[in-house]
Simulated assay, not measured.
Amino acid sequence: MATLNTYLNFNGNTEEAFNFYKSVFGGEFLVVQRYKDSPGCDGMPVDDQEKLMHIALPIGGNILMGTDITAPMPPATLGTGISLSVDATSEEEAKRLFDTLSAGGTITMALEKTFWNALFGMATDKFGIQWMVNYDYK
Rank of each mutant, 00 (worst) to 15 (best):
K95D: 13
T67Y: 00
I129C: 07
N117S: 11
I129V: 15
L4M: 09
L111I: 10
I63H: 04
V32T: 12
M44P: 02
G27D: 03
I129A: 04
V133I: 13
W116D: 13
A71S: 13
T77R: 06
V24N: 01
T6K: 01
K138Q: 09
V31A: 11
T70Y: 07
G105E: 08
L52K: 09
A2L: 14
D136A: 07
I129M: 12
D68K: 07
E16A: 14
T114V: 00
L30N: 12
A110C: 00
K95V: 11
V133K: 00
A17W: 07
L111S: 07
M132V: 07
K51W: 00
L97M: 13
M73I: 10
S102I: 03
D48T: 00
S90G: 03
L101Q: 06
T106E: 15
L57T: 11
P58G: 09
G105N: 05
S90L: 05
S83L: 07
W131A: 01
S38G: 05
V31H: 13
I82R: 10
D99T: 14
G128V: 08
T124R: 14
V31R: 15
D99Y: 05
T106M: 14
G43C: 07
G60D: 05
V31Y: 13
E50L: 10
L111G: 06
Y35W: 09
F10Y: 15
F127H: 11
L119Y: 10
P75K: 05
F20L: 03
K95N: 10
P39G: 13
V46C: 01
G81L: 09
G43V: 05
V133R: 01
P39C: 08
Y21S: 05
T114E: 02
W131G: 02
Q49R: 15
S102L: 06
N9E: 12
M53F: 14
D87Y: 12
E16P: 03
S90K: 02
L64E: 08
S90D: 04
